[in-house]
Simulated scan of single mutants.
Amino acid sequence: MKNPFRSISLFLLFITSFCKSGFGQQPATTTDSPKGVYQYRKAAYDGIGKTYLGREISQVMGHLGAAWLERPEREQEERTDLLLDALNLKPTDVVADVGAGTGYFTFLMAPKVPKGKILAVDIENEMINDLNTTKKKKGVTNVEPVLGTITDPKLPANGIDVALMIDAYHEFSHPREMMTNIVRALKPGGRVVLVEYRAEDPNVPIKPHHKMSIAQATKEMKTVGLRLKSVYTKLPQQHVMIFQK
């Protein structure tokens, strides 16, 4: 019988070597703004030594982990079909897929917003190149790759209906700055959707700093003026946490 967690275990082995090699890590500094938001300590094996509201920020999976994002087992392991339904997208929605990576979920969402568009945000040129290649190959016209930075996703002010982050927020090296800019980009009534592996469940086989609890996410979103609206709980291993202004 196939072990449903085999590919996850293999990925954890890969990502341990990948992160420790230094790729994708954001160095801890003492010059971050705003002053006093972040603290610093000796890094955990899967963290960067920089903390935000008591949470150590995790190491980053960069473009060298692209194969993991596109693995054939992903749909079944994460039930991406259920996640797509949970978003309840409207045909006219403008959606920011922040930390889009290769665009696995970007291109699943695109047909759901035929009169809107998907802004596929990533901070790595390699991922933007992958997004553009896939966009051309699929002939999709409502996907717009956006090269952001570690502090700014480069989204239009008051221009998006949904900001979606799938297993990405916990890796942001500057979460306060990123979320402040994301909130500025929300239209009135816009939503922020965080999809994160459940920190409350020790049986979820993901490194501790690559998980988030509902309580921690709620605390962090509150600092930028967002309140928890609902939590979708039907995914096998992840929370879908929906926030609004």
Rank of each mutant, 00 (worst) to 15 (best):
P4K: 08
R6V: 14
I8K: 04
L10Q: 10
L13H: 15
F14A: 13
S17C: 15
F18R: 09
F18D: 04
F18T: 01
C19M: 07
C19V: 15
F23M: 10
F23D: 04
G24A: 04
Q26V: 14
Q26N: 15
G36H: 04
V37F: 15
Y38K: 10
Y40W: 13
K42H: 15
A44W: 08
D46E: 13
I48T: 11
I48W: 01
G54Y: 05
S58H: 07
G62W: 09
R71A: 12
R74N: 05
R74K: 11
R74P: 10
R74E: 02
E75A: 13
Q76L: 03
R79A: 05
D81P: 10
A86E: 00
L87N: 00
L89M: 05
K90T: 05
P91K: 09
P91C: 09
T92M: 09
V98I: 08
T102P: 09
T106F: 00
T106R: 00
A110S: 09
V113A: 07
K115Y: 14
K115D: 15
I118K: 00
D122T: 03
D122H: 03
I128R: 01
D130K: 13
T134V: 13
K136R: 14
K137N: 09
K138C: 06
V140R: 07
T141R: 14
N142E: 04
V143K: 00
E144N: 12
G148F: 03
T149K: 11
I150M: 15
I150K: 15
P153C: 09
P153D: 03
I160K: 00
A163T: 07
I166L: 06
Y169T: 13
E171C: 10
E171V: 00
F172R: 06
S173W: 04
S173P: 12
S173N: 10
S173Y: 10
E177R: 15
M179C: 09
R184G: 10
K187H: 06
R198I: 13
V204S: 02
H209T: 14
H210Q: 12
I214K: 12
A215E: 13
Q216F: 07
M221I: 00
R227C: 03
V231K: 07
V231N: 14
M241P: 01
F243E: 01
